[in-house]
């Protein structure tokens, strides 16, 4: 351990602001990227499912129309 106290660790020899901002932005943006990437597949699947259901509904409406004509 290079630092004597927690205070010294956060202070980073006077460079605390620069070091912690760098680490914060890095892991913050990687975190956001991971979240977006991990949920992308589910969003895509939902999109496909919605489309399939819409097609199904349209088909049902058309079928009903044809039946009422006959």
């Amino acid at each position: 351990m290079q630092f004597d106290s927690l205070q010294a660790f956060f202070n980073m020899g006077g460079y605390g602001f620069f070091v912690w901002c760098s680490y914060g932005i890095t892991f913050g943006s990687i975190g956001i990227l991971i979240y977006l990437s991990a949920t992308q597949e589910k969003r895509n699947l939902k999109h496909i499912a919605d489309k399939l259901k819409r097609d199904e509904r349209l088909k049902a409406i058309r079928r009903n129309k044809n039946e009422s004509k006959a």
């Binding site: 990227l33 991971i34 990437s37 991990a38 992308q40 597949e41 589910k42 969003r43 895509n44 699947l45 939902k46 999109h47 496909i48 499912a49 489309k51 399939l52 259901k53």
Partner: peptide, 29 residues
């Protein structure tokens, strides 16, 4: 790992007309 996740999502998005993706989508619903 992140690229793999995005790659999988991209496969799904581009293969919406495939039966295996349709099944997955409806099962998820």
């Amino acid at each position: 790992a992140i690229v793999i996740m995005r790659f999988k999502a991209e496969i799904i998005a581009r293969s919406g007309m495939r039966p295996w993706v349709k099944t997955m989508a409806l099962e998820g619903e």
